[in-house]
Design a protein around this nucleic acid. Sequence first.
DNA 1: CGAGCCGTTGAGGGGATTCAAGCTCAGTGG
DNA 2: CCACTGAGCTTGAATCCCCTCAACGGCTCG
Lengths: 243, 243
Amino acid sequence: MLMRVRALRPEGAGHPQARTCAACTVRDDALFGALDATALEHIHAHIAAPEVPTDERIYARGQTGGAVYTVRAGIVRFERVSEGGRRRIVRLAGRGDLIGLEALLRQPFADDAVACTPVALCRIPPLLLEELGRAEAALPLALMRRWQQALEQAGAWAADLSAGPALRRVLKLLTRLERHAEADGRIWLPRRDEMADMLDLTVETASRMVSRLRREGILTLLPPRHARLDSDALARALAALDA
Amino acid sequence: MLMRVRALRPEGAGHPQARTCAACTVRDDALFGALDATALEHIHAHIAAPEVPTDERIYARGQTGGAVYTVRAGIVRFERVSEGGRRRIVRLAGRGDLIGLEALLRQPFADDAVACTPVALCRIPPLLLEELGRAEAALPLALMRRWQQALEQAGAWAADLSAGPALRRVLKLLTRLERHAEADGRIWLPRRDEMADMLDLTVETASRMVSRLRREGILTLLPPRHARLDSDALARALAALDA
DNA sequence: CGAGCCGTTGAGGGGATTCAAGCTCAGTGG
DNA sequence: CCACTGAGCTTGAATCCCCTCAACGGCTCG
């Protein structure tokens, strides 16, 4: 049905931003998938589509008055710094994820959000979502689903990536990165210091584990910052560890 | 204003469950704090107040069609079992927390929820919350706040409790338990194997750390499963580690 | 071409695990 | 009443894994 509306309404029509939004391939499975055409036309006027280069911060922990973002492309990390000054990466977000949900509640952000790769976003002002929420009863539900999804991710992160021997943690991270694979099947491979802060290891240990997996043929490095996985071998290695 | 309503309506009146709800000291800061008197009278008829003994499961990971619960007393742990068969405790909930939010979305529970201490609950059918949500616009907002709160907890858990040396993890856990302290200032102290599964340590290491803190006067054991903390000494020990 | 970042590898030490034994304490039944 | 039992906790000794410290190579930039 959405497709038909899009066909009747040429991409060049409406607000300038409408072109970007109409062309957005993420939209169907993203937050606004449930909205009708008039609602879409309304939001076009208020949404910006910023692009964030690698290692640039999207928002900062503690900051208030920010916006919510849909990730259209790229990978985002959530990090905080402990009292000891050590950085800890607590979660990743990828294509289709909604980040910065705190903004909807006018609460400060809980983590720093930083681009791991070049990232394409949709910036959604909280006020806009509130207006829509009053008109569209489906929206609060969709939001709650996003929240629950983030919570599930956080739990899995704590259970999988912060537990067990170093090799297991790296393997578990790789299975996670596989889900954010590019169209050609390559995965984004973090810098060693990023891996270290995700898994609570040192840079050296992370490097050693990667090298080992490379020697064993499970991982093929494709610089810069990319790799190819042998999924079966990876699964077998994990099963062997868990036995 | 809520107080006045309660005074006009004696505790014995209305549905039998009304007595329990009216006497509930958690209510004011819990989910239904925002509701008016008629709404409260409506929900009394549908809420059960189960009590769960220590180590009994409240709900299971994967289970669907369950309810949401407000924790009125006691401490609840969320755990999952890894492929290797190892248990991992990923979060705690205490008095005033809302657990099992997945049920609102008709989704399966993400973790096992188990009582760490004797736990008193309010069981809230999802259908009831949906009805109320349509009448009371404030409710979806309150729910989202709960979700965000749980998410923040999960992030803090990953950042604080799964990182750094064993002593630091135990200290961080203790500061967290301090927030759920009883009226007399005592805290609930987990069994050593529970601590181990919270912090990804072995039982022995957990025991060694506790003993050390006991010798250093930071912790005083008050069996069974309770202790008293020297908050200042605890803070100093943490600061020393982080320096 | 040197500077700096990133990744890798080695050697040594330290902290957590592993394996094992002994302890306390509550519950049980002779 | 008290040995007996088993679960939970503690402690010791040996081992191993990961961290620390250090050096080096590849690569991109200025």
